[in-house]
Each structure stands twice: as structure tokens, then as C-alpha cells.
Amino acid sequence: MQPTAATVPSLSCVNDDRRADALLADRIRTGDTEALGELYDRYAGTATATALRVVGSRDEAEDVVHDAFVAVWRKIDRFDAERGSLRAWLTTVVRNRGIDRVRARRASIDVADADERSLLRTGPNPTWEAALTRASADDLRSAMAALPDEQRRALELAYFEGYTYREVAELTGVPAGTANGRLRLALGKLRDALTGTTAAPLPVGEATMSEDLSR
């Protein structure tokens, strides 16, 4: 699933973006509060949208955004620009903290150290940063809109509502393997939209997913 030559993102602008974030991270690490302010100016819009989508109320969303930026400030030393993107870490922290609040309301799952998990999950992937810089938000949103309803719903339940794929399966009345397969298909299409690859079937589809992946 490689991007074709014509769609390989221009690495120069990407590198600029990554470099800018890496520089911001370095400044934040030295205790420069203005650098955190600049990070806020860059990403507060996306962070607020994410928090609002997760927690549903404006006041709570802003508390989540506030706390996520404070967490980035506090834990910046754990961030490694070689291994992940500051933007992805921040938005994942926002998402996880929002989910923690929603879960507290639902009084269910125990949450350990969400910020560190976020750091791991954003992972190393310069190609993806490259793709994102190149793809317009519109491309992504139309890819999202083009998803079959059941895939979009599974993705929303998982990412924005914090359900595990097994819970998604229960909520939507399908086997766990099917719910997991829908998440794979949905993400695969978003990935393809980012790289400009035409959608190709993923090696493992819904029909072939094992029913239960736990052991």
C-alpha cells in the first residue's frame, strides 16, 4: 500500500512543520511559557473540537483542553520529536482525557496513565505527518463522509466515545471480529485518503475476521 510516485508528499514543507513543532517542544522544555502559548495558538481549534465532540459540553471541553495543554507543559521532557508528532500527542491527550471524563460519568473502566499511553500510541511516523500536511482537511472529511455508515459509526464509538471494539460490537449487535474489522476498514480508508492511494481492499475484511480476538 505504497503511495504512487505522483502522490508522494513533498517532504520539504512537512519537515518545516515538524521542525517548527520540534523547536516549540525544545522551547517548552526550557520552561518557555510563550512557546506553550504558540502551541496553543496553533492547535487550540482542533483540540477544542476534539474535546467538544467527546465530552459534549462547551465548559467541560475547555477544561479538558486546558488540562491537556498543562499536561504537555508538565510532561514535555517525555516527548521525543524523532519518535512522534507533538500535534498528534496533544490531540490524543485531549481525546483520552475527554474519554476519562465520559467514563467517569459512565462509571466503568479504570484508566491508568492516559498521557503516557497517548505518547506511545502516536508513535513514530514521519510519513503520516507528511501526508497530513499535504492532504487538506477537506480530503479527510470527504473520505470520512464516504465511509459506509457502519464503519463511520464504529470509528466514532471507538475514538470519540471511548468504547473498546468489544463494546462497539455489543452496542451495534455484531460479533467482536466484525466491529474490529470495521475499525480497520475505516482507518485504512482514511490512511488512503491521506496518501492519495486509491482504496484497495485490506487483506483482512469483515468476513474473515475472527470472532473474538482475546485469548
Binding site: A44, V70, G123
Partner: peptide, 26 residues
């Protein structure tokens, strides 16, 4: 790749401007 793509899901949402006071509070 899929893991990295997942971290970009927030970009699917149109940005929402936080209230003006949030920056100062932060």
C-alpha cells in the same frame, strides 16, 4: 500506518474556537 492514521482522526473535525478567556487561564 493504521496506528498513525488513528492519531489524525481529530483532524476530521472542523476546528472550534475556544472562548477568548481560555488562553489567559491556561
Amino acid at each position: 500506518e493504521l496506528i498513525a492514521a488513528a492519531s489524525l482522526v481529530p483532524e476530521l473535525l472542523p476546528p472550534v474556537a475556544p472562548s477568548p478567556g481560555l488562553r489567559g487561564r491556561l
